[in-house]
Simulated assay, not measured.
Amino acid sequence: MPCHSLVYHSMGRYRRVTNSLEDALLRNSVTAQNINGAFTSIKIDPAINSTGLTSRLQVCSPGQEPSQPSGFYYNDIWTSLVCLGRHFPSPSDARACLNGKDIHMFGDSTLRQWFEYLERFIPTLKRIDLHVTYKSGPLLAVDPDAGLVMRWRAHGLPLRTSKTMLSNLHYEAAHLYGIGGGPQTVVVFTLWAHFSTHSVSVYIQRLSRLRRAISSLLFRSPETTVLIKSANTGYKSIYGSDWLSVQLDLLLRAMFKGMAVTILDVWDMTSCHYLPDNIHPGAPVIRNEVDLMLSYICPR
């Protein structure tokens, strides 16, 4: 068949890789169950000589080395131990930060959650219906009075999605070559979950092409903000798991080490929250993830 006959893409079926006994052992009623036990309360006393965990941190900027752990929650608020993370409690705070920004998001549904959060959170940010498949996009929201444009689109294949026009699926590296960049341009991407069922060599080749595209973007427009969302925990499937995710996440961090980009470390943010494990984290986690992103866009 000719190449132009390939018009649509959609997810096929998963190949059955387990037998009936294994299925019984892997059911939700068996796995991920709480273990009952008697735990005494934990009392945390203030440090005798404490200058504060964040007193020596710098403002959030590209190229900062990650810490272990990368932060902690207190009353559902994330405190970063990498940089002086900010919080944006009101829509006006987030809107002021994003005033005049041209935001390009590329990735999977875990990054689409950030787009959805900001769309709901900032009432003046309105979706433009592009009449495309929602799961893969592209999605577009604008706030004309603030000069804010925000886009999200799924990364190129491999991609598990519903039926969508293949012409709407752009490889992120190819798309980046068409972005001029500049101080008002923000590029955010994640590349992870849909690669867990593929060879690591496929993932490395993809990251290598993406690194070249970002290097070219920063060469022509060094003031462009480039943010990379790390993998998150909560992938519980025969075809994907935290064990597979962490291997890809380590490769992603290594590939972009030394570049003027920011790794938004959400691995700890999802692994230590009290909400049940979910590849799509709940609202409190998403709010803190977006606040961390905004902290790098508006460090002061």
Results as ranks from 00 to 15, higher is better:
Val186Leu: 07
Thr164Gly: 06
Val200Pro: 02
Arg211Gln: 13
Pro123Arg: 10
Val187Glu: 10
His175Met: 04
Met150Trp: 03
Asp143Met: 03
Ser215Ala: 08
Gln205Val: 00
Arg209Met: 09
Glu116Ala: 14
Leu157Glu: 14
Ile214His: 08
His198Lys: 08
Leu130His: 12
Thr110Phe: 02
Tyr171Pro: 01
Leu210Trp: 00
Ser167Leu: 10
Leu130Met: 14
Glu116Gln: 13
Ala141Cys: 05
Pro138Ser: 11
Phe121Leu: 05
Leu118Gly: 03
Leu169Pro: 06
Glu119Ser: 13
Lys126Gln: 15
Ile122His: 04
Ala174Gly: 06
Glu119Met: 11
Arg206Asp: 14
Gln205Arg: 12
Leu207Ile: 03
Ala193Trp: 00
Leu111Val: 06
Tyr177Met: 12
Leu139Ala: 02
Arg153Pro: 00
Leu125Asn: 07
Ile204Ala: 05
Ser215Arg: 12
Ala174Arg: 01
Ser136Cys: 07
Thr161Asp: 03
Pro138Phe: 06
Met150Glu: 03
Tyr117Ala: 08
Met165Tyr: 06
Ser216Val: 14
Ile179Cys: 01
Ala154Pro: 11
Ala173Asn: 11
Asn168Met: 02
Ser215Asn: 09
Thr197Lys: 15
Ala154Trp: 02
Pro183Met: 00
His131Gln: 12
Leu125Ala: 10
Arg212Gly: 06
His131Trp: 02
Pro123Ala: 11
Pro138Trp: 10
Leu166Gln: 14
Met165His: 06
Ala146Trp: 00
Asp143Arg: 06
Ala193Phe: 03
His194Arg: 12
Val188Leu: 14
Thr190His: 06
Phe121Gln: 05
Lys163Met: 12
Ser216Thr: 14
Gly181Gln: 11
Val186Asp: 07
Ala154Thr: 13
Gly180Met: 13
Ser199Ile: 01
Val188Cys: 08
Leu140His: 04
Arg112Leu: 08
Asp143Cys: 05
Ser199Lys: 13
Lys135Ala: 15
Thr164Ala: 15
Trp114His: 09
Arg212Ser: 15
Tyr177Asn: 14
Leu125Met: 11
Ala213Cys: 11
Arg151Val: 09
Trp114Ile: 01
Ser208Cys: 01
Leu118Trp: 05
Leu217Gly: 03
Leu169Ile: 15
Phe195Gln: 03
Pro144Gly: 02
Ile122Leu: 04
Gly137Arg: 06
Ser167Gln: 12
Phe106Pro: 01
Ser208Asp: 13
Ser162Ile: 04
Trp192Ser: 08
Ile214Glu: 08
Ser215Gln: 15
Ser216Cys: 11
Pro183Cys: 01
Ile179Arg: 01
His170Ser: 12
Tyr203Gln: 07
Val142Asp: 03
Gln205Lys: 12
Arg153Gln: 15
Ala213Gln: 12
Gly182Lys: 07
Leu139Gln: 09
Gln184Cys: 01
Leu159Gly: 02
Leu207Met: 13
Pro123Gln: 09
Gln113Asn: 14
Leu176Gly: 02
Arg112Trp: 06
Val202Ser: 12
Trp152Gln: 04
Ser196Met: 13
Met165Phe: 09
Phe189Tyr: 07
Tyr177Ser: 15
Val132Ile: 05
Gln113Arg: 13
Ser216Leu: 13
Leu130Asp: 12
Met165Arg: 14
Ser136Glu: 05
Asp129Tyr: 04
Leu139Phe: 00
Tyr177Thr: 15
Gln113Pro: 00
Pro144Cys: 03
His194Ile: 08
Ile204Ser: 01
Thr197Pro: 04
Leu159Met: 10
Ile179Leu: 06
Pro158Phe: 09
